[in-house]
Design a protein around this nucleic acid. Structure first.
Lengths: 222, 222
DNA sequence: TATTTTTCAATAGTATTACTATTATATTTG
DNA sequence: CAAATATAATAGTAATACTATTGAAAAATA
């Protein structure tokens, strides 16, 4: 049977020319994901990317205004994809608790199967989100970029899960704070477990991070 | 009465020449804190810093190998200072719960009085930690830098508070995970409350962030 | 005191980076 | 087939992070 074909649509402000509109555009996205993961965001340049895909540096600027904007694009793509996963995994679950628990799992687990989209490797993209995404919003331009709506998908994901929290406990005052703590915390713990292990308590085999944050959420809201 | 004079000692690996050893060195540290806060880490350069303190760019390289190393130095300074605050604020507290609560407050509150050290403004430094510190360890060199001990003070702070958790509940499996989640979460929430407020639930007047994480800690460990 | 050694910081650079202006080549349209 | 448009390559520029070298001041030694 054919796989369900869905399509991630990215807001026009995030690119100069839609990378989905040409083969070169898709190559830019897919190869940039691999290269940012390999080199890190600082050492990654449009020049290197151009060389690697047999194209010119300046051609890449036709698609993305800067490497910062490319990162913002990738982040937006990731959260759009997570939002789809989230909605798909939580609709038709009757129990409010099970629903929230499924949502927390989606937000905190490691992505390890590259499943749906031809030119985007979600496994690698997940690693980029963990290691590099904070660099996108920790800049002096955050306020104007936020006004332009660059982070609205991420905020919508937080809002969706916050609503699930509110359904379980309408009196709980800080659902957004809790959910954004869980998302960012899980990413950070995954990074720490690889590079600064004494800041975590990750055990072999089971996914300690998913369990820890699932437990945390339910203890805090009750 | 004279103020208690204490002294933050920074490990030698973090600088080329000890900035405390000369007036220029102290000026570099104190003015760099102001400029990183004003310009952001990306736009901050040694050239601009040199111009601002009436000195040459290359003179600054005598003290710090790179702007990255200067940031690592500042982060280390900050956590050494927090460690001092932490020990000072928690010794002689009998109740284990009160002790942990005092520690969590130290870790999550906003620094708003520049109190003890002549050439370091802790209020501004706290803002730098919140906005820029993740850029120090989200690099490809993290593993070698961690081996060299660049982050050992931070890890020691986490360990100290984790021990307090263990004293209250020896069966709790993930104290480091909890405490690093709290520290990083509180910083992130403070940043969000200023720039991406829909990810938080910060209210006027009271310090919601301190309350939230204090409540979280005790709910999770019991 | 004289001389050597060391410390210190300024000058003047280089290599690299992010980004842009212009030109050449396809492709589409009338 | 010609004009208009889309596309990408060439060849830049300005700024940045960092370095090599030199000259002067301070300190140590004879």
């Amino acid at each position: 049977m054919d796989r369900l074909q869905i399509h991630i649509v990215i807001s026009e402000e995030l690119y100069t020319k839609n990378p989905e509109s040409s083969e070169l555009g898709k190559k830019i996205v897919s190869r940039s994901i691999e290269m940012i993961d390999e080199l890190g965001f600082e050492a990654f340049t449009f020049k290197k990317l151009g060389q690697s895909i047999g194209s010119n540096e300046s051609s890449i600027y036709r698609y993305f205004e800067s490497k910062h904007m490319l990162l913002v694009y990738l982040i937006c793509w990731y959260w759009s994809w997570i939002e789809y996963k989230l909605v798909f995994a939580t609709t038709n679950i009757q129990s409010k608790e099970e629903k929230l628990s499924a949502a927390v799992e989606i937000l905190t687990r490691k992505v390890d199967v590259d499943n749906s989209f031809s030119y985007v490797n979600e496994v690698i993209l997940n690693r980029i989100i963990i290691a590099e995404s904070s660099k996108a919003y920790h800049t002096k331009d955050i306020d104007t970029e936020n006004e332009k709506g660059y982070y609205k998908v991420y905020k919508r994901v937080v809002q969706r899960v916050s609503n699930m929290v509110k359904e379980i406990n309408a009196d709980f005052d800080c659902p957004q704070m809790l959910i954004s703590t869980v998302i960012e915390g899980a990413h950070q713990q995954r990074y720490f477990s690889e590079h600064l292990p004494s800041l975590t308590n990750v055990q072999e085999g089971k996914d300690t991070i998913v369990q820890f944050y699932n437990n945390l959420v339910f203890k805090v809201i009750n």
